[in-house]
């Protein structure tokens, strides 16, 4: 989406190799990424603006120097393999976890609707879906019915939470998030426990609701095909931001192919194998011998 990738596009033209804190000497290209330890510049218009976010747990780097903006009305999809730190990043953005380094700036009017991955375990509180939806919100009867119809879950309104299937639970959680009238909707792997066609329906629904209500969306996913077509911007994460841009640009980016294999890349038609670095077994990127040229990077992507 035009104007949403200012930082990344501007910097793609002038990649700068630097030996920053994350310890891998690859060519990072982000406008406000700096090696001199200057004060990070937040994007004041963004709903959420993260700068230099690193998370280290038990001596292991889970996130390395992540910069991310989510703007109004923008659908940002966060993709990456298992263990890439997607959920950790979401938790940091939501304020559930403090980053080891770096900062997250939230706009003062930010109102998050969060759709968590799942319930941690079986729900042991006896409660109907209807009650769950309004819990902590006061009376909102008309909207409840309306929203349950929108997410196609009207039939479960009087059922107990513990009796719902995975897909039903997911839609109920979505309805609860929407009931809060968010300006940012955060969905962590919303398609888990939903079959393939259900997944397409879900993303169509989210896209349609975004068009109507005008909220920003942060979507986390480990799979790609359907997700990416709906996104304004895709951020490919493997502890660091590997590449980022409009879906087509990311699909053509070599880092994307390396992360998800040639199969995934071919699904988007084009795949060029260009090593500027490789990832070791722990997923840490290492530069390949001397070849740090960035000239083939697609628009909106940043070599990493």
């Amino acid at each position: 989406m035009a104007g949403t990738d200012k930082n990344l596009t501007a910097a793609a033209a002038a990649p700068n190799a630097c030996g920053h804190a994350s310890g891998h000497g690859c060519a990072h290209a982000q406008a406000d990424h700096n090696c001199a330890g200057e004060v990070p510049v937040f994007n004041p218009d963004a709903l959420i603006s993260a700068r230099g976010v690193s998370v280290t747990r038990g001596g292991r780097d889970q996130l390395i120097d992540v910069n991310l903006d989510i703007n109004e009305r923008e659908i940002v999809t966060l993709i990456g393999p298992n263990g890439a730190g997607k959920s950790t990043l979401v938790r940091v953005l939501l304020g559930l976890e403090k980053p080891t380094r770096g900062e997250v700036h939230r706009r003062t009017d930010l109102r998050i609707g969060y759709v968590p991955q799942r319930f941690d375990s079986d729900v042991s509180v006896p409660m109907t879906v209807e009650r769950f939806l309004t819990l902590g919100l006061g009376r909102n009867g008309g909207r409840v019915e309306d929203l349950l119809r929108q997410v196609d879950a009207s039939s479960v309104a009087q059922q107990q939470l513990g009796q719902l299937s995975g897909g039903e639970l997911q839609r109920v959680l979505l309805a609860r998030a929407l009931l809060r009238k968010p300006n940012l909707l955060v969905l962590d792997e919303p398609a888990q426990g939903v079959d393939y066609s259900g997944e397409a329906d879900l993303y169509n629904l989210i896209g349609r609701l975004r068009d109507e209500a005008g909220f920003g969306v942060l979507l986390v996913s480990h799979d790609l095909h359907i997700v990416m077509a709906r996104s304004d911007r895709v951020v490919c994460l493997n502890r660091h931001v590997c590449c980022s841009g409009v879906p087509q640009a990311v699909a053509q980016h070599p880092a994307y192919g390396r992360l998800f294999g040639p199969q995934a890349a071919r699904a988007f038609g084009i795949y060029r194998h260009e090593h500027d670095h490789h990832h070791d077994l722990a997923g840490m990127p290492h530069p390949a011998s001397g070849d740090t040229t960035d000239s083939d990077s697609p628009e909106g992507g940043s070599a990493c």
């Binding site: 968590p116 939470l161 959680l173």
Partner: peptide, 8 residues
């Protein structure tokens, strides 16, 4: 009901 959701 859901600790993380409530916290978020």
């Amino acid at each position: 009901v859901h600790e993380e959701l409530a916290a978020a």
